[in-house]
């Protein structure tokens, strides 16, 4: 399967979707000019992956900022994992937040409430 590697910028996150090496990660800042155009390829990739997934998928979110338009698309991504789980797949979301960032922590908790996918909250120190 094709690997997606997008380097992050000021307004778009770093995205790595690498099934071969078991790396699935979105990190950084997300306020793209056109959220749909940015996230569509990622959602499409996940559809393709769901058809032929690894035995276990650990997906990492390590965002420091996202705008409200992105929050909707992040939920769309999480919904894909909910579907995968409904189809009996082993999925875990790791939600990283800077230790002093209550809002980011809360955002993770809210997503965990909405979607039926195992969520692990992980705090880290910004260096």
């Amino acid at each position: 399967m094709e690997t997606i590697k997008i380097m992050g910028t000021d307004d778009t996150p770093t995205v790595i979707l690498d099934a071969e090496n078991d790396i699935f990660e979105i990190s950084g800042r997300s306020l793209p000019e056109d959220v749909t155009a940015f996230y569509d390829p990622i959602l499409n990739w996940l559809d393709e992956y769901a058809a032929n997934p690894n035995p276990k998928t650990i997906f990492t979110f390590k965002l420091v900022y996202f705008n409200t338009a992105s929050s909707k698309l992040l939920l769309d991504i999480l919904m894909k994992f909910e579907e995968m789980r409904e189809n009996g797949l082993d999925v875990l979301i790791k939600w990283y937040y800077p230790e002093d960032d209550e809002d980011m922590q809360e955002a993770g908790e809210e997503y965990a409430d909405i979607v039926d996918v195992p969520f692990e909250q992980v705090s880290y120190t910004l260096s």
Binding site: V35, T68, A69, S71, E110, I114
Partner: peptide, 26 residues
Amino acid sequence: LKELYKTQMREGRLSEKGGAGLGFID
């Protein structure tokens, strides 16, 4: 506000211009 944000995120559709009705709540 938290509940409204969650509902709006789940049920709201992105408009043509990319708005999801979440800005004011946020």
